[in-house]
Amino acid sequence: MSAPLLAVRDLAVRYRTDEGDVPAVRGVSFVLDQGETLGLAGESGCGKSSIAGALLRVLPRGTEVTGEILLDGEDVLAMKPGRLRAVRWTELAIVFQGALHALNPVQQVGSQIAEAVEIHGQSLTQERVAELLELVGLPARRARDYPHQLSGGQRQRVLIALALACNPRILVADEPTTALDVMVQAQVLALLEQLQQELGLAMLFITHDLSTLTHVCRRIAVMYAGRIVEEGPSEDVFSRPAHPYTAALAAAFPVIGDPAFRMRPSGLGGDPPDPRAIPTGCPFHPRCPVVRDECARTDVELWPVADGRRAACVRVLDGPGAGTA
């Protein structure tokens, strides 16, 4: 069997701060194959964006990243600087969140796209920029605009065009629809979905919005406190969560037209744990609605729930049909 396109093994990220180390990611493993779509969901601060940064090693200087990130079997974390720069954007590219400051405010967007093309030694840059902008549904003349002249949705399209500049095989979308209007969100999602299928891209889609993932991704992984707590086919995970945290996350998004949601909107109490003081046992137990005595003591790991599904909750050990939803 050949190596998968992207295999992440036991990835851990620790930020160094003045107040001590912060473990943002604590042992995450997943596999992404050619043309596959994997969704990564979780609240802010659960470590999902740190994973995106770790994949291309663009986290702040001094951040400790351990584990393995195997790109076609080659460990990104062990690459020499020259090799790493060559791999960046040509093998794996990131769609950054466009509502913030991912684009340089004093450069025309076209030249920011062109820069990526030129760095990796392709010629006919201007034609390529026009082609990319048209691919994401923007007129080519927009290349001469500055970021502040574009709307949020347009900026997000530019960032998608930018990510596709060097024909990467893997696209990492890091909260690409956050802070956009609902209508624009739907357009951007549809565009990403369409491009993923047309170009046969492998896509890692990172968001806090579980319902978005079920549309875009075939498989999803739910993260809590720096670890994956549940993974499986997206429809199954969303409709029949095996982990109480997934259930709470799924319930936080209303099903339009379902009267039960209108009568009883649900949400999860409490806050995500401080990464510097993660609770013992199952880190979710202080907020868990179905907590048991043993939860504070048991070290949970991803146990199989069903075919292709795993969850890190002691309840799955009770046997089939022990779902919490």
Binding site: V58, I94, L100, I119
Partner: peptide
């Protein structure tokens, strides 16, 4: 700490660039 520097690095630019 601006995001566009992270993006520039992710594109494959050298540190000096």
């Amino acid at each position: 700490r601006e995001d566009y520097l992270t993006l520039a690095r992710a594109k494959g630019l050298r540190d000096a660039q």
